[in-house]
Amino acid sequence: MSTPKPYMNPYFAGFLLGCVLLGAFYISGRGLGASGGMRALVVAGVETVAPAHAESAPFYVEQRAANPESPLRGWLFFHMLGLLAGAFLSGVVGNRVDFKLERGPNITVRSRMIFVVLGGLLFGFGSQLGRGCTSGSALSGMASLSFGGIITMLAIFGGAYIMAYFFRKLWL
């Protein structure tokens, strides 16, 4: 396999991403997102595995009331599938598709695996409490000047900066 191609200029990439985001607002009136698609998967999973539970627990009942169809037939899930496809295409173009585990230089594979799952847990939980993640709340919120979106953005990056010192061994 040949060597990966260099990444795009960050400002140009940002400009393109901004255009996609603007297109999303122009066409659909809403921005971009990622964690919503994951939630659709979770809700669909619960509805399949424990249908009785899904009919009584309040979150699933509210979800169903808002989207009577299966969550897997909704905008957010298809959006996520598109994200995967687009990223894969870019990986192919840039020669970057490769099964590997990336980690900081000074931690073991085992600890990287533990911490990445923990990080996912927290991010997944936080994205639901904060009504959206870095894309849906922070980025789309910045574009629409949403107060809540910008607060969430500051909290995400603020939280990460505060903790960065304590977890520097993971990355440096």
Binding site: G120, L122, G126, S127, A155, A160, M163
Partner: peptide, 8 residues
């Protein structure tokens, strides 16, 4: 939620 995401 944002702070939890930051730690994540």
């Amino acid at each position: 939620g944002g702070l939890i995401m930051g730690v994540g």
